[in-house]
């Protein structure tokens, strides 16, 4: 019990909930959040609008099946389109086995030793290396040391290294999402570790793994910086083959055309962007279909 006299009435702290003011602060903040989301949405809409209105008039069959030209109205993108698809497929073929194997090791085999922790940290660090630095590495190792030159295969190997961390991390997540009861069930039937992984875990993780790979391929197809360093050519009128020097891809073609001052070249650059975006959209669609098909038989 306090015997001190209460402080003077004027100095007495009063409890003022100030509900109205606090509610207003909350509402204004929510308004700011909505404005931020709205701004991002607006940016995306403006970007698509800009590319579609500028590019669509230039898209026709001749544009898809034509080759680059000094005259924008006659230029086509077939070499770049074929280059992108060819390199995308090679990137998938290279990074799929390596990335999945590495992920299986890290997720299903690796004990918690210092070395394995270093492996893990290293992969997250590799994911943070700028793509252009991969380009420098690809130039020195694949183009020069292994003498692959400025060929699609050198570009594909470089891009495969670039997306490897993405593939590994996606695969590890897919493996982690398989419940342990699957593993225990396989062991209980006398399976070895590899039999368990191959017959039980991999099929269950397949939807996630395939989605990860396809999305990584989409990312590789959109990359330009490392390919510039490895040595994509600026003017290619023939269809590229994997080991032959001289190739181009869609993002490089966009870069070449967009760098020119003339409006018509910007138009065909926008048209090439549309083709690139459609290609990526198709890959995303493929990922959804593959995921649905592969997970049809899964249930736990």
């Amino acid at each position: 019990m306090s015997t001190a006299s209460p402080p003077a009435v004027g100095a007495r702290p009063r409890f003022e909930p100030q509900i109205a003011r606090r509610k207003l602060a909350g509402t204004s903040f929510l308004g700011a959040c909505m404005a931020a989301i709205g701004l991002l949405l607006l940016a995306l809409v403006l970007l698509l609008y800009d590319v579609i209105t500028k590019g669509l008039p230039y898209i026709d069959l001749d544009f898809i099946t034509g080759t680059p030209s000094r005259r924008p109205e006659q230029a086509g993108i077939l070499p770049a389109l074929v280059g992108s698809i060819e390199i995308g497929l090679m990137v998938g073929a290279i990074s799929f086995p390596l990335g999945v194997a590495a992920a299986i090791y890290l997720e299903e085999y690796a004990a918690n030793t210092l070395f394995n922790r270093i492996l893990r940290t290293n992969i997250s660090n590799l994911a943070g290396v700028p793509s252009i630095v991969y380009g420098i590495f690809g130039l020195a190792l694949f183009a020069r040391a292994l003498q692959l030159g400025r060929s699609p295969i050198a570009a594909a190997l470089t891009l495969a290294l670039l997306i490897m961390p993405v593939v590994i991390i996606a695969t590890m997540e897919a493996l982690r999402s398989v419940p342990d009861s699957q593993r225990e069930g396989a062991y209980a039937l006398g399976a070895t570790r590899w039999q368990m992984v191959r017959r039980s875990i991999l099929p269950a993780a397949a939807p996630g793994i395939m989605t990860g790979i396809i999305l990584a391929m989409a990312r590789a197809i959109g990359e330009a910086a490392p390919i510039i360093v490895v040595g994509a050519a600026s003017f290619v009128t023939f269809l590229p083959t994997p080991f032959q020097e001289g190739f181009t891809v869609l993002p490089i073609q966009v870069y070449q055309w967009a760098s020119r001052p003339q409006d018509a070249f910007h138009g065909i650059a926008a048209a090439a962007i549309l083709v690139l975006l459609v290609l990526m959209l198709l890959l995303n669609g493929l990922a959804i279909i593959v995921r649905a098909r592969l997970s049809r038989h899964l249930q736990w």
């Binding site: 959109g222 990359e223 330009a224 966009v254 870069y255 967009a258 910007h266 650059a269 990526m280």
Partner: peptide
């Protein structure tokens, strides 16, 4: 792709 943002 970042090249598209550059174009934008």
């Amino acid at each position: 792709p970042t090249i598209v943002l550059g174009f934008f």
